[in-house]
Amino acid sequence: MNRIIKELDNNNNILSIYFTAGYPKLEDTCKIIKNLEASGVSMVEIGLPFSDPLADGLTIQSSSTVALNNGMNSDLLFNQLKDIRKTVKIPLIIMGYFNPILQYGVDDFCKKCKQVGIDGLIIPDLPIEEYLKSYESIFKENNLLNIFLITPQTNKERIKLIDNISTGFIYMVSSSSVTGSKNGFDSEQIDYFKRIQNMHLKSPKIIGFGISDSKSFNEAVQFSEGAIIGSAFINHINSYGINGIRSFIKKYKN
């Protein structure tokens, strides 16, 4: 069974952390994953850095640039992850823009993911239509879940379509914004969470974007099965280094 599905079956307060592979140092990738698991995180999104991250704000743009300058690329990432499953048990997702995956070869990329023990992919600029047309079977052959996004602007019919084709969870973007640009939720966002909750979708939902403290985390999990923290985590690493991970996660686990 796919580890993401297993986790979703057993946990409806999932804390998922996004970080950029190869940041702050090239060799930090596995250290960060192991540290996150030891700190009690339920799921990790490993960001594959891209030169032109359209949906990301300044924090992830900067971490991506540093990671690329450090020499991070797909091959190196797979190489770093080759023994990760000897120790790490939590679900691992790779989040990356489509072009580096396309250059690697979608087929090869997915095979490599399976080999090293990746459970799912989030590719923000690969739209559903293109996925269904060309790539769905490759994902399935490799037991990889493809995670789709919905936003406050996504209409009901499309949400139902996304719900239908989703095999893991739906990534619920909390606001109309790039990553790391908002802190906390306003009443409009809470209304959106409620609206989606009332649709009684078959897929679990995990909320991301704008979650930067335990208050917003706790609010998010009231309306979903979990929440994703990205920019706030990277900002914390910037200030405290990777040794500060445990104290960062502790705030969310109480």
Binding site: L54, A55, F98, P127, L149, T151, Q153, N155, V173
Partner: peptide, 11 residues
């Protein structure tokens, strides 16, 4: 061609 856009821009 095509439209390889994040879901935020879909609408």
């Amino acid at each position: 061609g095509g439209a390889f856009i994040p879901e935020m821009l879909y609408p």
